[in-house]
Design a protein around this nucleic acid. Structure first.
Lengths: 91, 91
DNA sequence: TAGATATTTAGATAATTTTCTAAATATCTA
DNA sequence: TAGATATTTAGAAAATTATCTAAATATCTA
């Protein structure tokens, strides 16, 4: 869960996730929305992938990224739980 | 909200929040649970305060920290919303 | 008021993260 | 297969964050 919280703490990565809500996009398509180099984009995508927040699929030369819905739900649950348990914390 | 996500992305700060779930604690009492200096503790508490995740109250020489419940709820709502809106994202 | 205790601020160093360019890998097409 | 396109990896530089010691501020008590 550390990976997830760290991943979503970065504004660039949240914007990437936002864009992916519209549907799968390639690394290049995502990159058009940012003023950073390809390798920097790849770095952020790597962190999202490590956190399991996105999944990838190659289609020809491009690699398409999409949101991993189930993990998003797990993450939401964690955050809710983290915030709600008031006593006997186990997080 | 950036401040909140950044604040909870750090393990030390999540542990602080966890300890505070049991009730208010002074900076010194919190520090006993960590192997870091007072100023480092103060730094983390400052970040939590900037994010408005904790509130403080001076009692004599000590300053007591406690969880700011309402903001925790806002934060949970944000994360849930962030994860759930699948289209037309506005976050 | 002087000394003790609690916490923060200041300023520097260490560790981590982000970013870049150059090069490597993978795929497609002529 | 050679060249073009898409993405990642390698390695270094820049930016940010966490940590430390020393000093400052605030409060209490004798």
């Amino acid at each position: 869960m550390q990976d997830v919280l760290e991943a979503i703490s970065d504004p660039t990565r949240r914007k990437i996730l936002d864009l992916l809500k519209q549907g799968p996009k390639s690394a290049g398509e995502l990159g058009e929305h940012f003023d950073i180099s390809g390798p920097s984009m790849s770095h952020h995508l790597g962190k999202l992938k490590t956190a399991n927040l996105v999944v990838t699929e190659r289609r020809g030369q491009s690699i398409y990224y999409s949101i991993n819905t189930s993990v998003f739900e797990d993450a939401a649950q964690f955050v809710i739980g983290f915030f709600q348990e008031k006593q006997g914390s186990k997080s």
